[in-house]
């Protein structure tokens, strides 16, 4: 029983990270129509930048975090201006392919600048090795922070999107470009800000994931990204709350499967392998997609012919 609760808790933690990433993915998709397969690379870039700040000039942790978040904002802005903007009117697949290319370019640049990140390195944080005990639960300090930060972030984001003028303008742009334009919203500026915000979210998620894994390399976000995308699609790819719920669901599924499959094997095949888990989640995802093409929480859209 306790084991199950423990699993649910870690499901909640990974799930909230997926949810955060899914949120950024959906935010960009809704406003600019870009399926951002470079989202993992964006997160990795900012996280690698933090790693360099921590290991190179040995800056204090929180100062380094602050700087890398600023870096993330800048990165988002550059990417939007240099590449998302020129492709704004392109078909959806063209944009998706462009983000795949962007991911390659980002990873190449990181490897060129910081070759040490080509192979896995230790990601140092002040929280490593500390643990919290809550009743019968065991919770690493990092995990506690992850829960706290993602929960706070989601609340702040919700308030931002619901209450502030800027947030409302972003949602309006996401709901309909033309209408937003007619209402006098500077959609060009909104695109820029959305990419910056999404890049910030990616950086935060990336740093938290790196802190949990304690080991990173250039590609450390790749396996995570697929699961985040699955979360986004399960959420319907068009609603922000759906994305978070979808991400949570994937995180829970992953951890429950890990518990169920651990120690079992099928002939020479170790079922505890993450590959198997991923495969099962993906199979479930495709099945759900077939049963509910618009995702679990997606709304029904009218098809006009």
């Amino acid at each position: 029983m306790l084991a199950l609760l423990q699993v649910l808790l870690s499901g909640l933690i990974t799930g909230s990270l997926y949810g955060l990433l899914a949120l950024g993915i959906v935010l960009i998709y809704r406003t600019t129509g870009v399926l951002n397969f470079a989202y993992g690379a964006l997160a990795a870039a900012s996280t690698c930048f933090l790693y360099i700040l921590l290991t190179g000039p040995r800056l204090p942790f929180w100062l380094a975090v602050l700087l890398s978040l600023l870096f993330a904002l800048l990165l988002g802005a550059v990417v939007e201006r240099a590449f998302a903007r020129p492709l704004l009117a392109a078909p959806i697949l063209t944009k998706a392919i462009a983000t795949l290319a962007l991911a390659l370019v980002l990873q190449t640049v990181i490897q060129a600048l910081w070759p040490q990140l080509t192979t896995p390195v230790h990601f140092p944080t002040p929280f490593e090795g500390h643990a919290l005990r809550l009743g019968g639960f065991y919770l690493s300090l990092t995990d506690g922070l992850v829960l706290l930060i993602t929960a706070l972030l989601l609340i702040v984001l919700q308030l931002f999107l619901l209450r502030t003028r800027l947030g409302i303008a972003m949602r309006a742009t996401a709901d309909g470009l033309e209408a937003a334009r007619l209402m006098g919203i500077p959609v060009g500026l909104i695109f820029l800000l959305v990419w910056m915000l999404a890049s910030l979210l990616a950086a935060i998620a990336g740093i938290l994931i790196a802190a949990r894994q304690t080991v990173i390399d250039v590609q450390f976000m790749d396996p995570v990204l697929l699961l985040a995308f699955i979360g986004a699609v399960l959420g319907g790819l068009d609603r922000l709350e759906g994305a978070v719920l979808g991400g949570l669901l994937v995180g829970l599924a992953e951890n429950v499967l890990a518990l169920l499959l651990a120690g079992h094997s099928l002939g020479p095949l170790d079922l505890g392998n993450p590959g198997i888990r991923e495969a099962l989640i993906f199979a479930g995802f495709v099945l759900l997609l077939l049963l509910r093409p618009r995702g679990l929480f997606g709304g029904a859209a009218l098809r006009r012919v």
């Binding site: 462009a98 290319a101 390659l104 370019v105």
Partner: peptide, 13 residues
């Protein structure tokens, strides 16, 4: 791969 990426981006744009 980096060059593929750059050229792909340039070609798309």
């Amino acid at each position: 791969t980096g060059i593929y990426g750059v050229l792909l981006l340039l070609a798309l744009i």
